[in-house]
């Protein structure tokens, strides 16, 4: 399908100097992602198209390259360019007690269920730099459940996992986190959990006593255990619907019966093949219980 510039002269638009050929661009992007997968093993082929396209163009513009194909040439021949692109393509936006209302609802509706279990297994999928893992650890400790819990915190990216393990977060965000913590129903003083050290806020290392940080790729790796709770917030939005559906099968298979699945506040199970297997516990929070 050609660009129909000729049909719309009335806007007074300057026609594109280099005609925009979306179908050709799609071919170039698919070839690039296929090349990355086959050469480096990173699989971005089923990521949401508009977002990955936007981030590829940002890299092209930063490197002052003429086209998507030129980026392919560089990426396939220069591992350093792949490293850069890998950082561009992994979104690591997170915060402690992000969406405080979720934590309040979790305390009210999920904690009572967890109290009935002798041992609690939690999978935090796509944990990034770990802020939300530490948040959950604090919540479990305050509810008296931490000692019988184990949190498996996974991410595709080794670099962010190392930072999660270190537990040092930017001091300048502590005001925001303190505010979130209070609104999330925190029961202590947030400042008890960290000390200013190494140019940042070093968090209480006993919070990770029962946390296992490990690399796991949601696109290619399989289930590795059975869990009572799976948290995966604002990760699946970067996948297309087919891949979302595949990952939901993985989560379903990894959840114990009556286990709890937590998604980001604007994510949904609608049109997923397992939609009927879950009940939403406390709308509008995206906390779902596996019931069949």
């Amino acid at each position: 399908m050609a660009v129909q510039i000729a049909e719309v002269p009335d806007t007074g638009a300057e026609p594109d100097r280099q005609a925009f050929k979306p179908d050709l661009e799609r071919i170039e992007i698919e070839l690039l992602l296929e090349g990355i997968f086959r050469h480096y093993g990173f699989d971005f082929r089923a990521y949401a198209y508009a977002s990955i396209r936007r981030r590829l163009w940002k890299r092209i513009e930063e490197e002052k390259l003429p086209s998507m194909s030129a980026l392919q040439e560089r990426v396939l021949h220069e591992p350093a360019m792949m490293e850069k692109l890998l950082l561009d393509l992994s979104i690591n936006v997170t915060a402690m007690f992000r969406d405080p209302s979720f934590y309040i609802t979790f305390r009210q509706h999920v904690v009572p269920l967890l109290r009935t279990y002798p041992f609690i297994r939690i999978w935090h999928a796509g944990c990034s730099t770990g802020e939300e893992v530490y948040s959950m650890a604090m919540l479990l400790r305050e509810e008296g459940l931490y000692d019988r819990s184990r949190i498996y915190a996974t991410d595709i990216n080794e670099v962010v996992l190392q930072r999660a393990k270190a537990g040092i977060f930017p001091l300048e965000r502590m005001q925001e986190y303190t505010d979130n913590y209070m609104r999330a129903g925190g029961k202590r003083s947030f400042s008890e959990y960290y000390t200013a050290k190494y140019g940042g806020a070093l968090f209480d290392q006993s919070l990770t006593k029962n946390v296992v940080f490990s690399q796991h790729n949601l696109v290619t790796d399989r289930s590795f255990s059975e869990f009572n709770v799976i948290l995966c917030r604002n990760v699946l939005i970067y996948f297309d619907k087919t891949l979302q559906s595949k990952v939901h099968s993985l989560f379903y298979d990894s959840l114990a019966m009556f286990g709890v699945l937590v998604l980001g506040s604007k994510e949904t199970l609608r049109f997923m093949s397992h939609e009927e297997c879950y009940q939403q516990m406390a709308p509008p929070e995206k906390i779902f219980r596996k019931v069949r």
């Binding site: 660009v3 129909q4 510039i5 049909e7 719309v8 925009f20 979306p22 949401a48 508009a50 977002s51 396209r53 936007r54 981030r55 979104i91 936006v93 604002n234 939005i237 970067y238 604007k266």
Partner: peptide, 27 residues
């Protein structure tokens, strides 16, 4: 939806939405 960096201090950004609309639906 994405949680990428704010653009010109905005998230949601009008520029980001408009640009993607134009690239997808053009004329």
């Amino acid at each position: 939806l994405t949680t990428e960096e704010p653009v010109r201090f905005s998230r949601p950004s009008i520029d980001v939405m408009f640009t993607s609309a134009a690239d997808t639906y053009r004329s």
